[in-house]
């Protein structure tokens, strides 16, 4: 996939030979870069420069804990309160609330819309993120009208906070191969003895773990947080899962 990996600091000049130049596709800039017209591309955070000449794409890979909304992100939001037309939701602590219109749910009309109470969780997409406005969310695909897995989260479970980089790794299409996170597969598979649970990972660094068994919820959440904070590799993740499951079995 990406070839060149280079460490950059904010304001450093990127060697022009590293900037991908595709004959047809326009250059796409990911997080951590800004374009100063006419032709300067400057990093704004410290991280690793990722370039992809095939997709004509470049970005900075870094880890942080404070979520800044950007359009298209799948996030886990908590309802703060409801107004006449929309819900106000929190994406990250101490930030301005995001708005979630009452009608931005699958097959919602003025008469039939989901009634959400303060504190409830919703799995949503950021539909509008703009420096001068509060972010806007949706739980439905604007063109198809389908929820695609988004919507209010129901059932017993608990939310765990992880770093944004870890949430990104969990959200990768191939989390085990590309992201190096195998805890969830291990917990549900052979090492964990087939624990039954479900998860919803938000790009804002929140992971909801749901299961009928509270012990499973705690174990999965702890395994995720431990993997994130101690920066565990695959082998250590396996050992952690075995240890946690063994401890759980003893207490039964």
């Amino acid at each position: 996939m990406s070839n060149d990996r280079l460490f950059v600091l904010p304001g450093e000049t990127i060697d022009p030979s590293l900037i991908p130049s595709h004959p047809k596709n326009p250059l796409r800039l990911g997080p951590g870069l800004r374009h100063i017209p006419p032709s300067d591309i400057v990093p704004t955070v410290a991280g690793q420069l990722i370039t992809n000449p095939v997709k004509n794409f470049m970005s900075i890979e870094y880890n942080s804990t404070h979520y800044i909304p950007s359009q298209g992100d799948i996030i886990l939001a908590q309802i703060l309160r409801s107004t006449t037309d929309f819900y106000l939701c929190s994406l990250a602590p101490y930030t301005a609330p995001a708005t979630l219109p009452h009608l931005a749910f699958e097959s919602a009309t003025k008469k039939t819309r989901p009634i959400l109470s303060p504190g409830q969780l919703v799995y949503a997409r950021v539909s509008l993120a703009n420096a001068h406005m509060d972010p806007e969310l949706e739980c439905v695909h604007a063109s198809t009208g389908k929820a695609d897995g988004l919507g209010p989260i129901t059932g017993p479970g608990c939310v765990f906070d992880v770093s944004l980089g870890f949430a990104r790794r969990l959200l990768m299409a191939r989390a085990v191969e590309d992201g190096g996170v195998g805890v969830l597969d291990m917990l549900g598979g052979e090492e964990g003895g087939g624990l039954a649970f479900e998860t919803a990972v938000g790009r804002n660094g929140r992971v909801w773990v749901g299961s009928d068994n509270p012990k499973t919820v705690v174990i999965v959440g702890r395994a995720l947080q431990e993997t994130d904070r101690s920066r565990l590799g695959m082998e250590r993740q396996r050992r952690l899962v075995k240890k946690l499951v063994r401890e759980m079995r003893w207490r039964d």
Partner: peptide, 17 residues
């Protein structure tokens, strides 16, 4: 000094790459 300090941090954060 600044560069090497940050370099270590980023390398540790992206250990999975």
């Amino acid at each position: 000094f600044l560069r090497s300090t940050m370099g270590f941090k980023v390398a540790a954060d992206l250990h999975w790459k």
